[in-house]
């Protein structure tokens, strides 16, 4: 058995280098965007909305913003990297090597996690001077951050493998990823929604990531963090399984 651990680490490292070289766009810009969201929304809504008892709107908003940035950047990392390599053709350099299917999968997804977690913690850190928030259960925070970034990293990988043009990635991002994040309770608690929308939100897997993540901060959530964990973990497993299967079959990579 040829483990080629070094090969895996190299691909992971290359993916990190790729976003680090343009960190201004890939890390700083999304943090700045999140700060703007925070300033505007909390200014407009502060004092008018109270989501959880004793939790100011600004504080409520921060974990949601951090998670949203984390998810979007994890997705962007894999989808843009794979699509770019495929379209420019330099993906052959990876495809020619003895990297296994799972190493290929893990290297891309873990690099997406790294960027997602970096942006997410950047948002938390950068907003801390404006609003202070508790950190009731750091383990849950990390768990959901990690699972969320892995999930979106995997989705991005799938999308990058499938897409033949950048337009298709942008469409996927605009019509699926962004609506699902916005409707997942980044800006509100689903308890403030009419019943039918509450039920609809519970079909959105992103809702559980954000809700569980928020639980880690406030110790309060819309649904039990344990069920969220099971749902998010299950979704990640299923999605990873499909992605690995496609990679193994060479779907659109080894035509």
């Amino acid at each position: 058995m040829d483990t080629n651990l070094g090969g895996f680490l190299t691909l992971f490292y290359k993916e990190i280098l790729r976003f680090r070289k343009v960190a201004f766009q890939t890390v700083l810009a999304p943090i700045l965007t999140a700060i703007l969201y925070l300033l505007i929304f909390s200014h407009v809504l502060e004092g008018r909305v109270q989501v959880y008892p004793g939790v100011a709107y600004g504080s409520f908003l921060i974990p949601g913003l951090a998670m949203m940035s984390l998810l979007q950047n994890s997705f962007a990392n894999t989808s843009s990297s794979i699509a770019q390599s495929k379209i420019t053709g330099n993906i052959v350099f990876v495809l020619l090597t003895p990297l296994t299917h799972s190493q290929f999968y893990l290297a891309y997804v873990l690099a997406a996690c790294a960027r997602g977690l970096l942006v997410g913690s950047g948002v938390l850190l950068a907003t801390s001077p404006f609003v202070s928030i508790p950190l009731a259960q750091p383990v849950w925070v990390f768990l959901f951050a990690f699972l969320g970034s892995a999930m979106l990293g995997t989705l991005g990988l799938l999308c990058g493998i499938w897409a033949e043009k950048f337009d298709q990635i942008a469409a996927f991002q605009n019509f699926i990823i962004i609506p699902l994040t916005f409707l997942s309770g980044v800006f509100y608690s689903i308890h403030s929604l009419p019943d039918v929308w509450q039920q609809a939100s519970k079909l959105n897997p992103f809702f559980y990531m954000i809700d569980g993540f928020r639980y880690g901060f406030f110790g309060v959530s819309d649904v039990s963090p344990h069920s969220s964990l099971v749902i998010v973990g299950g979704a990640l497993l299923a999605l990873s399984f499909v992605t690995l299967l496609l990679i193994r079959r060479g779907y659109k990579l080894r035509a």
Partner: peptide, 8 residues
């Protein structure tokens, strides 16, 4: 990088 992919 290319060399690294082969574990070298």
């Amino acid at each position: 990088l290319q060399s690294g992919y082969y574990g070298l």
